[in-house]
Write a protein that binds this DNA or RNA. Structure first.
Length: 158
DNA sequence: GCCAACGTTGGC
DNA sequence: GCCAACGTTGGC
C-alpha cells in the first residue's frame, strides 16, 4: 500500500465536484506528463491512499483524502477529438495516456501550502521540492502520518 | 500578469 | 544525441 498526492485545479475539478460525483468517484483523466502517467500505470494499486490537493487557486493546499478505487486503464479523452486532452498520436492499439479512478474518503480542513512548508518534518516532501511541477507525487508513510496528525489540529494562522 | 523551473519538440 | 526554442505549470 502506497501513498500519493494528486493535484487538481479546483476551477477544473474540485474536492466538492468529487463529493457530488456518482459514488463519490471519478476517473483521474487528463494527465499528460510521462512521469505522472508512469506512477498511475506502473505503481498505483487499488487501496492506495492519496491527498487531494487544490492548485492554481487562492489558497493552494490539501483539502481531502481519496483512495485509488480502480487501477490504470487507457484515458478515454486521448481519443476524443472534441476534448482538450485529445492526443493525435495516441491510438486504441497503442494508447499513450492512462488514468486510475479515485474515490473520496473524506474532505479535510485545508492544509495550505504555506502550512506544509512550515513543517520541518516535511522538508523533504516531493511536493515541496524546488521547481516541482508534477501533478502526481509519492508521499512517504512518515509524511502521510504526520499530515494526518496535522489535520487534527485547528486551522493555523499561516 | 509575471516568471522560474521544468518538459517537450524538432532540426541538425 | 544535442540543444535551442517553445510550451506549461503554478505560486506569487
Amino acid at each position: 500500500m502506497r501513498y500519493w498526492l494528486l493535484k487538481s485545479e479546483p476551477a477544473e475539478f474540485s474536492i466538492d465536484d468529487l463529493a457530488l460525483a456518482p459514488r463519490h468517484a471519478t476517473a483521474w483523466f487528463g494527465v499528460r506528463n510521462y512521469q505522472a502517467r508512469n506512477f498511475m500505470r506502473d505503481e498505483m494499486q487499488v487501496g492506495d491512499q492519496a491527498f487531494f490537493y487544490h492548485s492554481s487557486c487562492t489558497i493552494p493546499g490539501i483539502v481531502g483524502i481519496v483512495e485509488i478505487s480502480q487501477s490504470a486503464y487507457p484515458d478515454a479523452t486521448q481519443f476524443d477529438r472534441n476534448s482538450k486532452y485529445f492526443d493525435p498520436k495516441a491510438t486504441r492499439a497503442r494508447p499513450r495516456w492512462f488514468n486510475v479512478e479515485v474515490k473520496l474518503t473524506k474532505k479535510t480542513r485545508l492544509i495550505s501550502l504555506s502550512e506544509l512548508r512550515a513543517q520541518n518534518s516535511l522538508s523533504k516532501m516531493r511536493l515541496l521540492a524546488r521547481g516541482n511541477r508534477l501533478s502526481i507525487t509519492p508521499v512517504t508513510a512518515a509524511e502521510w502520518k504526520f499530515i494526518l496528525q496535522l489535520m487534527k489540529k485547528p486551522e493555523g494562522a499561516l
